[in-house]
């Protein structure tokens, strides 16, 4: 069993109303010095079997077609530190 993490973020050019709401709230709550906040989604996938290139390719495919809306979002796929890795993922 290994864990693969998919992070989904709105593309940098896309308006992020949630992130902006958080950013605006910060100074009101006394937290200074944060000029921008962008909020994303993190998926933790428990993978059966080895996390080899084929498994990662499958995960990239599911991330692209289902977890992320690639019209407005980017995503990254990474294997969680400490997990068994069949081969060095990029």
């Amino acid at each position: 069993m290994a864990r693969v993490v998919v992070d989904v973020m709105l593309k940098p050019e896309i308006l992020d109303p949630q992130g902006q709401a958080v950013q605006r709230a910060l100074p009101r709550l006394g937290f200074e010095g944060i000029s921008d906040v962008r909020q994303g989604k993190r998926f933790e996938l428990e993978v059966d079997g080895p996390v080899d290139e084929a498994a990662l390719a499958r995960i990239r495919d599911l991330a692209e077609s289902f977890l992320a809306n690639t019209v407005i979002e980017d995503f990254t796929v990474k294997v969680e530190e400490g997990a068994e890795v069949a081969e060095a993922a990029k």
Binding site: L10, K11, E13, I14, L15, D16, P17, Q20, V71, I72
Partner: peptide, 15 residues
């Protein structure tokens, strides 16, 4: 510069 900017706009109804 990033050569492809998205043509999609995201709205914020509260704004």
């Amino acid at each position: 510069k990033p050569s492809k900017r998205p043509a999609v706009q995201v709205g914020d109804p509260f704004q």
